[in-house]
Design a protein around this nucleic acid. Sequence first.
DNA 1: GGGAGATAGTTACAAACGAAACTAGCTGCC
DNA 2: GGCAGCTAGTTTCGTTTGTAACTATCTCCC
Lengths: 168, 168
Amino acid sequence: MSIENERPPESPLTLATFLPYRLSVMSAVVSEGLARLYNERFGIAIPEWRVLATVGEFRSVTAKAVGLHAHMGKVKVSRAAASLETRGLIRRVPNAADGREAFLALTPDGEAMYGEIAPLALSYAGRLTETLSAADRAALDRLIDLLLRRAGEMNAPGPPGEASPAGA
Amino acid sequence: MSIENERPPESPLTLATFLPYRLSVMSAVVSEGLARLYNERFGIAIPEWRVLATVGEFRSVTAKAVGLHAHMGKVKVSRAAASLETRGLIRRVPNAADGREAFLALTPDGEAMYGEIAPLALSYAGRLTETLSAADRAALDRLIDLLLRRAGEMNAPGPPGEASPAGA
DNA sequence: GGGAGATAGTTACAAACGAAACTAGCTGCC
DNA sequence: GGCAGCTAGTTTCGTTTGTAACTATCTCCC
Protein backbone atom coordinates (compact mmCIF):
# COMPACT_ATOMS: atom_id res chain seq x y z
CA MET A 1 0.00 0.00 0.00
CA SER A 2 2.90 2.34 -0.61
CA ILE A 3 1.26 4.53 -3.19
CA GLU A 4 -2.45 5.02 -2.66
CA ASN A 5 -3.53 5.95 -6.15
CA GLU A 6 -7.24 5.46 -5.68
CA ARG A 7 -7.81 7.05 -9.09
CA PRO A 8 -5.61 7.53 -12.15
CA PRO A 9 -3.23 10.43 -11.53
CA GLU A 10 -4.97 12.86 -13.87
CA SER A 11 -8.74 12.99 -13.99
CA PRO A 12 -9.91 12.88 -17.58
CA LEU A 13 -12.39 15.65 -16.90
CA THR A 14 -11.08 19.10 -16.13
CA LEU A 15 -13.53 21.96 -16.02
CA ALA A 16 -10.99 24.38 -17.44
CA THR A 17 -10.83 22.46 -20.71
CA PHE A 18 -14.44 21.32 -20.86
CA LEU A 19 -16.00 22.99 -23.89
CA PRO A 20 -19.52 23.69 -22.55
CA TYR A 21 -17.99 25.29 -19.49
CA ARG A 22 -15.62 27.37 -21.57
CA LEU A 23 -18.40 28.54 -23.84
CA SER A 24 -20.49 29.48 -20.86
CA VAL A 25 -17.73 31.52 -19.24
CA MET A 26 -16.79 33.20 -22.48
CA SER A 27 -20.39 34.18 -23.14
CA ALA A 28 -20.84 35.37 -19.57
CA VAL A 29 -17.73 37.55 -19.62
CA VAL A 30 -18.65 39.11 -22.95
CA SER A 31 -22.27 39.68 -21.95
CA GLU A 32 -21.20 41.17 -18.66
CA GLY A 33 -19.14 43.87 -20.33
CA LEU A 34 -21.83 44.65 -22.82
CA ALA A 35 -24.58 44.69 -20.20
CA ARG A 36 -22.60 47.15 -18.14
CA LEU A 37 -22.30 49.40 -21.16
CA TYR A 38 -26.06 49.41 -21.78
CA ASN A 39 -26.94 49.65 -18.18
CA GLU A 40 -24.64 52.45 -17.11
CA ARG A 41 -25.29 54.63 -20.10
CA PHE A 42 -28.92 53.88 -20.87
CA GLY A 43 -30.43 52.09 -17.91
CA ILE A 44 -31.37 49.19 -20.12
CA ALA A 45 -30.91 45.46 -19.47
CA ILE A 46 -30.13 42.73 -21.95
CA PRO A 47 -33.67 41.47 -22.63
CA GLU A 48 -34.78 45.02 -23.32
CA TRP A 49 -31.76 45.60 -25.48
CA ARG A 50 -32.56 42.54 -27.55
CA VAL A 51 -36.11 43.67 -28.12
CA LEU A 52 -34.97 47.18 -28.96
CA ALA A 53 -32.36 45.83 -31.37
CA THR A 54 -34.86 43.54 -33.07
CA VAL A 55 -37.49 46.22 -33.43
CA GLY A 56 -34.80 48.60 -34.63
CA GLU A 57 -33.65 46.07 -37.17
CA PHE A 58 -37.08 45.26 -38.61
CA ARG A 59 -38.96 48.48 -37.88
CA SER A 60 -42.22 46.68 -37.20
CA VAL A 61 -42.51 43.18 -35.74
CA THR A 62 -44.85 41.18 -33.57
CA ALA A 63 -43.75 40.06 -30.13
CA LYS A 64 -43.74 36.50 -31.34
CA ALA A 65 -41.35 37.34 -34.18
CA VAL A 66 -39.11 39.17 -31.72
CA GLY A 67 -38.96 36.07 -29.56
CA LEU A 68 -38.06 33.86 -32.48
CA HIS A 69 -35.43 36.23 -33.79
CA ALA A 70 -33.87 37.13 -30.46
CA HIS A 71 -34.09 33.68 -28.92
CA MET A 72 -36.33 34.74 -26.05
CA GLY A 73 -39.41 33.16 -24.53
CA LYS A 74 -42.67 34.99 -24.96
CA VAL A 75 -42.85 35.93 -21.30
CA LYS A 76 -39.50 37.65 -21.42
CA VAL A 77 -40.44 39.47 -24.60
CA SER A 78 -43.73 40.54 -23.08
CA ARG A 79 -42.05 41.98 -20.01
CA ALA A 80 -39.23 43.67 -21.91
CA ALA A 81 -41.70 45.17 -24.37
CA ALA A 82 -43.91 46.42 -21.54
CA SER A 83 -40.89 48.06 -19.94
CA LEU A 84 -39.80 49.70 -23.20
CA GLU A 85 -43.32 50.89 -23.84
CA THR A 86 -43.55 52.41 -20.36
CA ARG A 87 -40.36 54.34 -21.05
CA GLY A 88 -41.79 55.58 -24.32
CA LEU A 89 -39.22 53.81 -26.46
CA ILE A 90 -41.54 51.57 -28.42
CA ARG A 91 -45.20 51.69 -29.26
CA ARG A 92 -47.74 49.01 -30.10
CA VAL A 93 -49.70 49.11 -33.33
CA PRO A 94 -52.60 46.68 -33.14
CA ASN A 95 -52.94 44.44 -36.15
CA ALA A 96 -56.37 45.17 -37.58
CA ALA A 97 -56.32 41.87 -39.41
CA ASP A 98 -55.61 39.81 -36.28
CA GLY A 99 -56.73 41.11 -32.93
CA ARG A 100 -54.43 38.78 -31.01
CA GLU A 101 -51.21 40.38 -32.09
CA ALA A 102 -49.74 43.85 -32.33
CA PHE A 103 -46.75 45.22 -34.13
CA LEU A 104 -43.99 46.80 -32.13
CA ALA A 105 -42.22 49.85 -33.52
CA LEU A 106 -39.75 52.39 -32.21
CA THR A 107 -40.99 55.79 -31.09
CA PRO A 108 -38.84 58.80 -31.98
CA ASP A 109 -37.23 58.49 -28.53
CA GLY A 110 -36.68 54.82 -29.23
CA GLU A 111 -35.09 55.62 -32.58
CA ALA A 112 -32.80 58.08 -30.87
CA MET A 113 -31.71 55.58 -28.25
CA TYR A 114 -31.28 52.85 -30.83
CA GLY A 115 -29.20 55.24 -32.88
CA GLU A 116 -26.93 55.72 -29.89
CA ILE A 117 -26.70 52.17 -28.63
CA ALA A 118 -26.24 50.37 -31.93
CA PRO A 119 -22.89 51.98 -32.80
CA LEU A 120 -21.74 51.43 -29.25
CA ALA A 121 -22.62 47.76 -29.45
CA LEU A 122 -20.95 47.38 -32.81
CA SER A 123 -17.87 49.08 -31.48
CA TYR A 124 -17.78 46.71 -28.52
CA ALA A 125 -18.00 43.71 -30.82
CA GLY A 126 -15.39 45.26 -33.07
CA ARG A 127 -12.94 45.82 -30.25
CA LEU A 128 -13.52 42.25 -29.15
CA THR A 129 -12.23 40.87 -32.43
CA GLU A 130 -9.86 43.59 -33.54
CA THR A 131 -6.85 41.60 -32.43
CA LEU A 132 -7.94 38.64 -34.55
CA SER A 133 -6.76 38.10 -38.10
CA ALA A 134 -9.34 38.11 -40.86
CA ALA A 135 -8.90 34.37 -41.17
CA ASP A 136 -9.51 33.93 -37.45
CA ARG A 137 -12.64 36.02 -37.62
CA ALA A 138 -13.93 33.93 -40.48
CA ALA A 139 -13.06 30.73 -38.64
CA LEU A 140 -14.83 31.98 -35.54
CA ASP A 141 -18.02 32.70 -37.45
CA ARG A 142 -17.89 29.35 -39.16
CA LEU A 143 -17.21 27.46 -35.93
CA ILE A 144 -20.04 29.17 -34.13
CA ASP A 145 -22.40 28.22 -36.92
CA LEU A 146 -21.20 24.64 -36.82
CA LEU A 147 -21.52 24.31 -33.06
CA LEU A 148 -24.91 25.98 -33.06
CA ARG A 149 -26.17 23.58 -35.66
CA ARG A 150 -24.61 20.57 -34.01
CA ALA A 151 -25.95 21.39 -30.56
CA GLY A 152 -29.35 22.06 -32.04
CA GLU A 153 -29.35 18.63 -33.65
CA MET A 154 -28.21 16.95 -30.47
CA ASN A 155 -30.92 18.65 -28.43
CA ALA A 156 -33.66 17.92 -30.95
CA PRO A 157 -35.71 14.79 -30.29
CA GLY A 158 -33.96 13.05 -33.18
CA PRO A 159 -35.55 10.85 -35.83
CA PRO A 160 -38.61 9.04 -34.43
CA GLY A 161 -37.68 5.61 -33.25
CA GLU A 162 -34.55 6.73 -31.42
CA ALA A 163 -33.93 6.94 -27.73
CA SER A 164 -36.09 10.02 -27.28
CA PRO A 165 -39.25 8.56 -25.66
CA ALA A 166 -39.57 9.49 -22.03
CA GLY A 167 -38.59 6.17 -20.52
CA ALA A 168 -35.18 5.88 -22.08
CA MET B 1 -35.61 65.32 -50.24
CA SER B 2 -37.23 63.17 -52.87
CA ILE B 3 -36.26 59.90 -51.25
CA GLU B 4 -37.06 59.85 -47.58
CA ASN B 5 -34.45 57.41 -46.43
CA GLU B 6 -34.72 58.12 -42.75
CA ARG B 7 -32.04 55.48 -42.22
CA PRO B 8 -29.62 53.70 -44.56
CA PRO B 9 -31.42 50.82 -46.28
CA GLU B 10 -29.71 48.10 -44.33
CA SER B 11 -29.19 48.54 -40.62
CA PRO B 12 -25.54 48.00 -39.78
CA LEU B 13 -26.55 46.07 -36.68
CA THR B 14 -28.21 42.73 -37.14
CA LEU B 15 -28.66 40.59 -34.07
CA ALA B 16 -28.09 37.39 -36.04
CA THR B 17 -24.52 38.42 -36.84
CA PHE B 18 -23.74 40.24 -33.62
CA LEU B 19 -20.98 38.30 -31.90
CA PRO B 20 -22.03 38.72 -28.24
CA TYR B 21 -25.52 37.60 -29.15
CA ARG B 22 -24.21 34.61 -31.09
CA LEU B 23 -21.96 33.57 -28.24
CA SER B 24 -24.84 33.84 -25.82
CA VAL B 25 -27.15 31.70 -27.92
CA MET B 26 -24.46 29.12 -28.62
CA SER B 27 -23.66 28.82 -24.95
CA ALA B 28 -27.33 28.64 -24.02
CA VAL B 29 -28.09 25.90 -26.52
CA VAL B 30 -25.10 23.82 -25.47
CA SER B 31 -25.79 24.31 -21.76
CA GLU B 32 -29.42 23.45 -22.25
CA GLY B 33 -28.64 20.06 -23.71
CA LEU B 34 -26.09 19.30 -21.06
CA ALA B 35 -28.33 20.49 -18.25
CA ARG B 36 -31.10 18.23 -19.47
CA LEU B 37 -28.70 15.30 -19.40
CA TYR B 38 -27.67 15.96 -15.79
CA ASN B 39 -31.13 16.78 -14.68
CA GLU B 40 -33.04 13.90 -16.19
CA ARG B 41 -30.54 11.27 -15.21
CA PHE B 42 -29.24 12.59 -11.90
CA GLY B 43 -31.55 15.33 -10.72
CA ILE B 44 -28.66 17.74 -10.60
CA ALA B 45 -28.53 21.31 -11.91
CA ILE B 46 -25.60 23.14 -13.43
CA PRO B 47 -24.26 24.93 -10.35
CA GLU B 48 -24.26 21.65 -8.47
CA TRP B 49 -22.64 19.92 -11.38
CA ARG B 50 -19.86 22.50 -11.44
CA VAL B 51 -19.17 22.06 -7.77
CA LEU B 52 -19.25 18.30 -8.08
CA ALA B 53 -16.89 18.42 -11.04
CA THR B 54 -14.47 20.71 -9.26
CA VAL B 55 -14.44 18.66 -6.09
CA GLY B 56 -14.07 15.53 -8.20
CA GLU B 57 -11.16 17.08 -10.03
CA PHE B 58 -9.24 18.24 -6.98
CA ARG B 59 -10.43 15.76 -4.35
CA SER B 60 -10.38 18.34 -1.58
CA VAL B 61 -10.99 22.05 -2.06
CA THR B 62 -12.40 24.97 -0.14
CA ALA B 63 -15.61 26.64 -1.30
CA LYS B 64 -13.62 29.69 -2.22
CA ALA B 65 -11.33 27.69 -4.49
CA VAL B 66 -14.34 26.09 -6.10
CA GLY B 67 -15.78 29.50 -6.86
CA LEU B 68 -12.55 30.68 -8.40
CA HIS B 69 -12.08 27.57 -10.46
CA ALA B 70 -15.68 27.17 -11.59
CA HIS B 71 -16.39 30.87 -12.12
CA MET B 72 -19.17 31.05 -9.54
CA GLY B 73 -19.95 33.57 -6.86
CA LYS B 74 -19.60 32.45 -3.29
CA VAL B 75 -23.35 32.50 -2.72
CA LYS B 76 -23.95 30.11 -5.57
CA VAL B 77 -21.18 27.82 -4.38
CA SER B 78 -22.56 27.89 -0.86
CA ARG B 79 -26.02 26.90 -1.99
CA ALA B 80 -24.86 24.24 -4.41
CA ALA B 81 -22.54 22.75 -1.79
CA ALA B 82 -25.32 22.72 0.80
CA SER B 83 -27.55 20.92 -1.64
CA LEU B 84 -24.88 18.35 -2.49
CA GLU B 85 -24.15 17.82 1.18
CA THR B 86 -27.83 17.28 1.95
CA ARG B 87 -27.93 14.61 -0.73
CA GLY B 88 -24.89 12.95 0.76
CA LEU B 89 -22.70 13.54 -2.26
CA ILE B 90 -20.05 15.68 -0.64
CA ARG B 91 -18.86 16.15 2.92
CA ARG B 92 -17.20 19.04 4.69
CA VAL B 93 -13.89 18.58 6.45
CA PRO B 94 -13.21 21.54 8.74
CA ASN B 95 -9.75 23.00 8.38
CA ALA B 96 -8.16 22.71 11.81
CA ALA B 97 -5.64 25.38 10.90
CA ASP B 98 -8.30 27.92 9.89
CA GLY B 99 -11.75 27.73 11.42
CA ARG B 100 -13.31 29.89 8.76
CA GLU B 101 -12.96 27.45 5.95
CA ALA B 102 -13.66 23.80 5.30
CA PHE B 103 -12.54 21.42 2.62
CA LEU B 104 -15.13 19.83 0.41
CA ALA B 105 -14.65 16.22 -0.64
CA LEU B 106 -16.73 13.60 -2.38
CA THR B 107 -18.44 10.93 -0.30
CA PRO B 108 -18.48 7.41 -1.72
CA ASP B 109 -21.91 8.19 -3.18
CA GLY B 110 -20.50 11.36 -4.63
CA GLU B 111 -17.59 9.46 -6.14
CA ALA B 112 -20.04 7.04 -7.70
CA MET B 113 -22.13 9.80 -9.21
CA TYR B 114 -19.08 11.67 -10.41
CA GLY B 115 -17.86 8.47 -11.98
CA GLU B 116 -21.10 8.24 -13.90
CA ILE B 117 -21.57 11.85 -14.89
CA ALA B 118 -18.02 12.68 -15.94
CA PRO B 119 -17.89 10.22 -18.85
CA LEU B 120 -21.35 11.35 -19.90
CA ALA B 121 -20.25 14.96 -19.91
CA LEU B 122 -17.08 14.15 -21.81
CA SER B 123 -19.08 12.20 -24.33
CA TYR B 124 -21.46 15.12 -24.79
CA ALA B 125 -18.55 17.47 -25.43
CA GLY B 126 -16.99 14.90 -27.72
CA ARG B 127 -20.12 14.52 -29.81
CA LEU B 128 -20.34 18.29 -30.02
CA THR B 129 -17.00 18.54 -31.79
CA GLU B 130 -16.77 15.19 -33.50
CA THR B 131 -17.74 16.69 -36.84
CA LEU B 132 -14.89 19.20 -36.60
CA SER B 133 -11.47 18.63 -38.07
CA ALA B 134 -8.51 18.52 -35.72
CA ALA B 135 -7.45 21.89 -37.04
CA ASP B 136 -10.88 23.32 -36.34
CA ARG B 137 -10.84 21.98 -32.81
CA ALA B 138 -7.46 23.57 -32.21
CA ALA B 139 -8.65 26.84 -33.72
CA LEU B 140 -11.74 26.78 -31.54
CA ASP B 141 -9.70 26.35 -28.38
CA ARG B 142 -7.34 29.09 -29.40
CA LEU B 143 -10.12 31.48 -30.33
CA ILE B 144 -11.95 30.90 -27.07
CA ASP B 145 -8.76 31.68 -25.16
CA LEU B 146 -8.21 34.83 -27.17
CA LEU B 147 -11.75 36.09 -26.74
CA LEU B 148 -11.75 35.26 -23.05
CA ARG B 149 -8.56 37.20 -22.53
CA ARG B 150 -9.69 40.10 -24.67
CA ALA B 151 -13.09 40.42 -23.00
CA GLY B 152 -11.42 40.20 -19.62
CA GLU B 153 -9.12 43.07 -20.53
CA MET B 154 -11.97 45.14 -21.86
CA ASN B 155 -14.01 44.63 -18.72
CA ALA B 156 -11.11 45.36 -16.40
CA PRO B 157 -10.87 48.93 -15.11
CA GLY B 158 -7.94 49.55 -17.40
CA PRO B 159 -4.71 51.43 -16.60
CA PRO B 160 -5.33 54.14 -13.99
CA GLY B 161 -5.87 57.48 -15.65
CA GLU B 162 -8.19 56.16 -18.32
CA ALA B 163 -11.88 56.73 -18.72
CA SER B 164 -12.82 54.48 -15.86
CA PRO B 165 -13.81 57.04 -13.17
CA ALA B 166 -17.52 57.12 -12.59
CA GLY B 167 -18.28 60.41 -14.25
CA ALA B 168 -16.94 59.64 -17.69
C1' DG C 1 -72.67 30.22 -38.17
C1' DG C 2 -71.05 28.04 -34.16
C1' DG C 3 -68.18 25.25 -31.33
C1' DA C 4 -63.34 22.64 -30.77
C1' DG C 5 -58.95 23.47 -30.92
C1' DA C 6 -54.96 26.41 -31.96
C1' DT C 7 -52.35 30.83 -31.28
C1' DA C 8 -50.63 35.76 -29.36
C1' DG C 9 -49.85 37.71 -25.43
C1' DT C 10 -50.44 38.58 -20.24
C1' DT C 11 -50.70 37.33 -15.47
C1' DA C 12 -49.72 34.43 -11.29
C1' DC C 13 -46.82 31.74 -8.82
C1' DA C 14 -42.64 29.67 -7.51
C1' DA C 15 -37.70 28.75 -8.16
C1' DA C 16 -33.07 30.79 -8.94
C1' DC C 17 -30.18 34.50 -8.54
C1' DG C 18 -27.01 38.38 -6.88
C1' DA C 19 -25.95 42.26 -3.76
C1' DA C 20 -25.48 43.39 0.57
C1' DA C 21 -25.74 42.42 5.43
C1' DC C 22 -24.25 39.35 8.71
C1' DT C 23 -21.45 35.70 11.53
C1' DA C 24 -17.39 33.66 12.78
C1' DG C 25 -12.61 33.38 12.81
C1' DC C 26 -8.00 35.02 11.39
C1' DT C 27 -3.93 38.53 11.05
C1' DG C 28 -1.22 42.34 11.92
C1' DC C 29 0.01 46.01 14.75
C1' DC C 30 0.27 48.84 18.86
C1' DG D 1 -2.95 40.66 24.58
C1' DG D 2 -6.38 43.05 22.42
C1' DC D 3 -8.49 45.71 18.88
C1' DA D 4 -8.97 47.23 13.76
C1' DG D 5 -9.48 45.36 9.73
C1' DC D 6 -9.67 41.39 6.62
C1' DT D 7 -11.43 36.85 4.90
C1' DA D 8 -14.62 32.39 4.44
C1' DG D 9 -18.94 31.27 4.30
C1' DT D 10 -24.12 31.86 5.24
C1' DT D 11 -28.46 34.28 5.39
C1' DT D 12 -31.63 37.82 4.01
C1' DC D 13 -34.01 40.45 0.76
C1' DG D 14 -35.41 42.22 -3.49
C1' DT D 15 -35.10 41.18 -8.59
C1' DT D 16 -35.20 38.26 -12.50
C1' DT D 17 -36.58 34.26 -14.59
C1' DG D 18 -39.36 30.31 -16.23
C1' DT D 19 -43.65 27.24 -16.02
C1' DA D 20 -48.21 27.06 -15.98
C1' DA D 21 -52.59 29.00 -16.07
C1' DC D 22 -55.45 32.37 -18.11
C1' DT D 23 -57.69 35.76 -21.64
C1' DA D 24 -58.76 37.04 -26.05
C1' DT D 25 -58.91 36.13 -30.70
C1' DC D 26 -58.56 33.39 -34.77
C1' DT D 27 -59.22 29.04 -37.86
C1' DC D 28 -61.04 25.02 -39.29
C1' DC D 29 -64.71 22.14 -40.16
C1' DC D 30 -69.33 20.43 -39.43
